[in-house]
Simulated assay, not measured.
Amino acid sequence: MYLKLIHYSLFCDLALLLDAFGQSFLQPDISVFRQNLESLENLNAKLKLYHKKIFQDMMLSPFLNVLLQVLLHKSHDLLQEDICVTVYNMAAVNFEGFYATFLPQFLASSEGLDANQRTILECNFKHDQDLPSFSSTLHRFITDMRYYRLCNSALPEGSAQAMTTSHGLEQWNQIVTNSAIYKQYWLQMG
């Protein structure tokens, strides 16, 4: 019984510590963010934190959510690569769970997207398991998500509904394809 009490106490202490880390990632101070991101990665390197059941069950999803939101909002853009490495390290513990569970839940809870855009984003997120490919896919995912939100915010009220038909989806995909072609063209010309 005494051993269970000690175990429970350690569990509570770890939960409080991880919660404090999570709260610090919501602060605008980039130096605190960097320091805590490094500390979290050090804990993982030394203690395999991301592999611990408590982290997997209770903290993984909130941490991934916060880190992806930071990438989406560009609030700590100077740390973009460090954040991508941390997201990779968290996802690498269970890639199957990341792709099958976390990613769909993240997209379902994301505002500013319609159902078709969520599906496209999920389908375009390649199931890479090496850091460079995962990082590249994550960057594209974040960029595409920002783009969809920007396009949706620029549409007149109610017009986003027209995009949910199959004809509307075809038009939307053509717009996106043409936008990418034109963007590439202008980058080459500029």
Rank of each mutant, 00 (worst) to 15 (best):
L64C: 08
H51C: 00
I83C: 06
K74Q: 14
K52S: 01
H51R: 06
V85Q: 08
D82N: 14
F102R: 06
S109R: 13
L79N: 03
I54P: 07
N116E: 13
Q117P: 13
F63H: 04
Q80C: 09
A115H: 03
L64Y: 01
N116R: 15
T119I: 08
Y99Q: 13
K52D: 08
I83W: 05
S75R: 14
Y99A: 04
I120Y: 09
G97V: 07
F106I: 12
R118L: 07
Q69K: 14
V93G: 04
E81K: 15
P62D: 07
G97L: 10
S75T: 15
T119N: 06
E111P: 02
K53P: 07
V87E: 03
I83T: 12
H51T: 00
V70H: 04
N89P: 15
G112N: 10
I120K: 11
V87S: 06
L60V: 06
L79C: 14
I83S: 09
D57C: 12
F98R: 03
I83P: 02
V85R: 00
L71N: 06
C84N: 08
S110R: 11
K74M: 00
H76A: 10
S110G: 03
S75L: 09
Q56R: 03
F102E: 00
I54G: 00
L67P: 15
P62A: 11
S75W: 03
I83F: 09
E111R: 10
L78Q: 11
H73L: 14
